[in-house]
Lab assay of single mutants.
Amino acid sequence: EFTQISGYVNAFGSQRGSVLTVKVENDEGWTLVEEDFDRADYGSDPEFVAEVSSYLKRNGGIKDLTKVL
């Protein structure tokens, strides 16, 4: 089950073990991109978060400006 990723309007994530599946949706709710990120592939949590965040930004993730990150 996908849940909204904090700080984004149209990005959602689903966690299974160490694998986080993220997706970005358009205004109609269609999935634009979907990608798996395995936490085990990264040396640290900040590196993992930075990679996921960068992916979302590159692929149309819209920041939720009503929330302070």
Rank of each mutant, 00 (worst) to 15 (best):
Y55M: 04
A50R: 10
L32S: 07
N10L: 04
K57Y: 10
K63I: 14
D38H: 03
V24D: 01
K57R: 09
I62G: 03
Y8G: 08
G17N: 04
V22Q: 00
V9E: 04
R58W: 08
V49I: 13
D45F: 13
R16I: 08
D27L: 10
N26Y: 05
N10E: 02
L20W: 10
V19C: 08
R16T: 08
F12R: 03
E34I: 14
R39H: 04
F37H: 00
A11E: 03
V33A: 13
R16S: 09
V24C: 06
E34C: 15
V33H: 11
G43N: 12
E34L: 11
S6M: 10
Y42G: 02
T21H: 11
F48R: 00
G61N: 03
I5T: 03
I5Y: 07
V9Q: 07
D41L: 11
Q4N: 09
F48I: 01
T66V: 09
L20H: 01
G29N: 04
T3F: 14
V19H: 03
E1H: 13
V22C: 02
A40R: 11
L20D: 00
I5R: 02
N10R: 08
G43D: 11
T21S: 07
D36Q: 15
E35H: 14
Q4E: 06
G29R: 05
S54A: 13
K23I: 08
Q15H: 08
G13D: 01
S54Q: 11
S18T: 11
G29W: 03
Y55T: 00
G43A: 11
Y8M: 05
G60W: 08
L56F: 01
R39W: 05
L32K: 05
E51I: 12
S18I: 02
L65G: 11
G60F: 08
G61Q: 03
L20R: 00
V49Q: 12
L56H: 02
L65M: 12
N26C: 10
D41M: 08
T3K: 14
D64M: 07
W30T: 14
S14V: 14
E35S: 10
T66S: 11
Y42K: 00
R16H: 09
D38E: 03
Y8F: 10
Q15V: 13
S53W: 09
E51W: 07
F2H: 05
E35I: 13
G29Y: 02
Q15A: 08
E25V: 15
N59V: 10
D45H: 09
L65R: 07
K67F: 15
S6Q: 11
V9Y: 08
Q4M: 11
G17I: 03
L32T: 08
L32N: 04
G60Y: 07
T21K: 09
V52K: 00
V19K: 05
F2I: 05
K63S: 10
L65C: 15
E25Q: 12
S44Q: 03
S53L: 12
V49D: 12
F37N: 00
Q4F: 09
D45P: 03
V33P: 03
E1C: 15
V19Q: 03
Y42R: 01
A11F: 03
K23E: 01
I5N: 04
S53R: 13
G29D: 03
A50H: 10
N10W: 05
V49P: 01
I62E: 05
D64W: 07
Y55N: 01
Q4K: 13
R16Y: 07
V22T: 00
T66L: 14
A40G: 07
S54Y: 08
W30E: 13
F12Q: 02
S14F: 12
V68Y: 12
F12P: 01
D45R: 04
F48K: 00
E51Y: 10
R58L: 13
E47C: 10
S53Y: 11
I5P: 05
Y8C: 09
G7Y: 07
E1T: 13
F2M: 06
E47I: 06
K57Q: 13
A40M: 10
G17S: 01
Q4V: 12
G61K: 04
S14W: 12
D36K: 12
S54T: 09
L56A: 00
G29K: 04
K67I: 15
A11T: 02
D45S: 06
T21P: 00
I62L: 11
E28M: 12
S6E: 13
R39N: 02
